[in-house]
Design a protein around this nucleic acid. Structure first.
Lengths: 339, 339
DNA sequence: CGCCCGGCTGCAAGCGCTTGCAGGACGGAG
DNA sequence: CTCCGTCCTGCAAGCGCTTGCAGCCGGGCG
């Protein structure tokens, strides 16, 4: 039926051991044997069985990527980067989508499904419960978090506190003092700090400027376009609506822009809006934003697990934490306060 | 180190065969034995080694998903749907991203990397060369194409000819007669018909209305935002610019909208724009479009491969072709011709 | 009361590869 | 000429599961 290493060995007149070594570039094979085996393998269309080699070697050359979504800019972008980085180095990517991200309703994630399936795992901003984290640690394999961090496990992320501060300071510098925040779901488990930190950055920047964060101006946008839209609508019902809005993601900012447009308000004249991400369409929407390097985060995460998988001892991965820089991108959605 | 089936068998006082059968719900195991084994397995934290079971059974319970992108709306959406459908039925998804989709430059895709790794594959609108298709067929496993079709292999898609026609007829019905088309890369291999068919639909609708498709009004937008933007800019340099534009995707339409806005033109008063997809942000942009059911296409594709993997004989999969309906979504970017 | 049959279970042979260890060939040094 | 290394190569024992087949045990039937 299909070509096995046995067939190749026979045809080449060598043992399967030699074929295996030759094809994998291991030492202790003469150059001539190696090239001959390679030629024959190619000619016969031999492809090693992954299952067999996994079983024999104990390594799967696969890393699991756990994500709450695929169809959202940040995640899609990050997954793409991780995939590319890993495939380049001969690793496969096993996608695991955690149905819903909203704390309670989500079915528990059982990291054990990954055991025996992957050599390492990358977790993309999924708010995990304590027991899930424990289970993840018990896997005893390299684990890297993207977009958040957890003690004892590797991570690559941005400084979300700085993000919130940077965005808010930008608005303050434009003369705004009534600055709203559209953030995530306040009920979410707080392991993943991005939403929390961005809010904290907002509050801290306000305080630093002698302003007080108004709870009424802090609304949930659930990191979705519709959520952002609803949040903005809610803000507009206020007796004294804000003159500027810091949305924790560009997608929420898009929603906010839509809500403002529908309310007949002008951006940035009536309300300034700033987001976070530098989403693909942010330029198109002329949205001022805090750019975060998503692709680079994904790539870095891939690199980290690969490094951990490398020469180092299988246990005792030093928990590396990488912080990537962000940057304010000024566009047309923010301007000096006029009202 | 880790729990094997042997350990469970020993602890339960039965053979590994019985454990295997009990845990997989196979017949020929008494109810009491089954539940006892299940209890012990759970208690010991046993997880079957995928490699071992793959090797022994010859099935991988994994399907490969080949896609040119992750970070594009259509693809992200489709992948998410496929993943969900497959995981639900116990299958894993192996992501394979084909670096670039532009015909020539792309490294050849060698379907053989999938051999021994997956039981079936889903290909998302990747324009493959003839030899790649042959290799894919030679894999002798279920293959489903999403967004295009290839003889002899299963497919699920929409009627792209109808899409082009529908969009163009909508513009014609609004009184437009100078209707441009922003499409894909004209140099792409033509196995994947979506871009080609949409263009053909445009031309055919024009002819049916007694109009002639003007080659000067048919420009390449490469299915990207920037491409659409550039295409629109090019159209605006024409001595006699169109009063309406049919973009082959919402993303290109977004680009077109941006270009129009930058040129100081009003949509839909100066130019009407219609896209295809009903992208997540189309509503926000108030873009009229032809909606295609992406999630459903992904789900259906997943279902098809699972069905093909099922009871039927491993060879001789009937090449099923599923065509899903599209629908015109009227929004504010198209209106009666005024000029 | 002997047989047969059906329902459970265990045996053991793989599945296709990896890898520690032993062995063989060859060349240079002593 | 002998003795050692040094290189290559082969042996064979697994890796942890699946599965065809055989075997065992009771109970129903003739």
């Amino acid at each position: 039926m299909h070509v096995t290493i046995e067939d190749v060995a026979q045809r080449a007149g060598v043992s399967t051991a030699t074929v295996s070594r030759a094809l994998r570039g291991l030492p202790h094979v003469s150059a001539s044997t190696r090239s001959e085996v390679a030629r024959i393998a190619l000619e016969m269309g031999y492809v090693a069985s992954k299952s067999a080699s996994n079983l024999a070697s104990g390594r799967t050359r696969t890393v699991g990527v756990v994500t709450p979504h695929i169809a959202k800019w940040f995640f899609a972008q990050a997954i793409e980067a991780v995939e590319q980085e890993l495939r380049q180095r001969g690793y496969d990517v096993l996608l695991v989508v955690l149905p819903s991200t909203s704390g309670e309703g989500r079915p528990v994630f059982d990291p054990d499904v990954l055991r025996q399936r992957v050599d390492a795992v990358a977790v993309l901003t999924v708010p995990l419960t304590g027991s899930e984290l424990d289970a993840l640690r018990r896997l005893r394999m390299p684990v890297v978090f993207v977009g958040g961090s957890v003690s004892g496990l590797m991570s690559v992320r941005i400084d979300d506190l700085a993000v919130g501060r940077l965005a808010t300071e930008h608005l303050i510098s434009l003369g705004h003092s009534s600055i709203a925040h559209i953030g995530g779901d306040p009920d979410e488990p707080h392991n993943f700090s991005a939403p929390v930190d961005r809010r904290a950055g907002w509050a801290s920047a306000l305080r630093a400027a002698g302003l007080v964060p108004d709870p009424a101006l802090d609304v949930a946008g659930f990191f979705s376009v519709e959520g952002g839209q609803a949040a903005m609508e809610k803000l507009l019902t206020l007796a004294d609506p804000p003159t500027a809005v810091f949305a924790g993601s560009d997608e929420m900012a898009f929603g906010a822009l839509a809500a403002l447009r529908q309310a007949g308000l002008e951006v940035p004249d009536d309300v300034s809006v700033i987001g976070v991400d530098d989403h693909e369409l942010a330029g198109l929407m002329d949205l001022t934003t805090i750019r975060q390097p998503v692709t680079e985060q994904g790539r870095t995460a891939g690199g980290l697990v690969l490094a951990a998988l490398g020469p180092s001892s299988p246990t005792g991965h030093r928990a590396e934490h990488v912080l990537l820089p962000v940057e304010l991108v000024r566009r047309g959605s923010t301007a000096a306060r006029v009202r």
